[in-house]
Simulated scan of single mutants.
Amino acid sequence: MRKPARSTSKATRRPQTKSADALFDAYPAPVKTKLLALRRLIFETAKATRGVGALEETLKWGQPSYLTPETGSGSTVRIDQVKPAADQVAVYFHCQTNLVETFRELYPELNYSGNRAILLDVAGKLPEAALRHCVGLALTYHLRRKAGVAS
């Protein structure tokens, strides 16, 4: 099990941190390409989603992680290659939320890992619309809870 890494940056909509750069560079090319596409999707979704504010990119558990420290609007979103499956990546969500349960109801066609992740094939096309919606729900999770709105 990997130890949590300390944040090295307050990355506000800027490209990745040096530690994230090194991590992305260490992945095999197809995995790196898919993870960078997910990263881009997360930042674009945050920018387009009202109330989210600037994202912070950091490493948690050795995985690229995206937080909303400016507004506290959302739950952390992480991305990584699925170990040991070299042909899959995952978008991870906090397992003590009902986010993945909500995603299952909205998008039964997606593949999931328990109550914590959406699984994606490295060679497959990203289901962008569904992922943008799911990421948007995660990045506004606390806003909706404060407003008394279910996921």
Rank of each mutant, 00 (worst) to 15 (best):
D80E: 14
P84V: 02
A54G: 10
K60A: 13
K146D: 15
V122H: 08
N98W: 00
Q96L: 04
V100D: 12
V122D: 13
Y107C: 04
E109T: 08
R145G: 06
V135C: 06
E70Y: 00
L131Q: 03
V52A: 06
M1F: 05
G72R: 06
K3G: 09
N98D: 15
H133P: 01
A37E: 15
L41Q: 06
S19F: 00
K34M: 07
R145W: 00
W61P: 13
Q88M: 11
Q81D: 12
C95R: 11
E101N: 08
L119S: 04
A11N: 11
E109F: 01
Q96H: 07
C134M: 12
R78N: 10
L106M: 13
A29M: 03
A54M: 04
L59A: 07
T71G: 12
A54F: 00
G53A: 09
N98V: 02
L41C: 05
T12Q: 13
L137S: 04
A123F: 00
P69R: 02
A117P: 06
V149D: 15
R39V: 02
S113I: 02
V82N: 13
L59Q: 12
C134Q: 08
V149K: 15
L106D: 14
R145Q: 13
A85C: 01
V77E: 14
E56C: 02
E105W: 00
A26G: 08
A37N: 09
L36M: 12
A22C: 01
E70K: 08
L120P: 10
L41D: 10
A5N: 14
H142L: 07
S151W: 03
R14V: 03
L106V: 01
R116W: 00
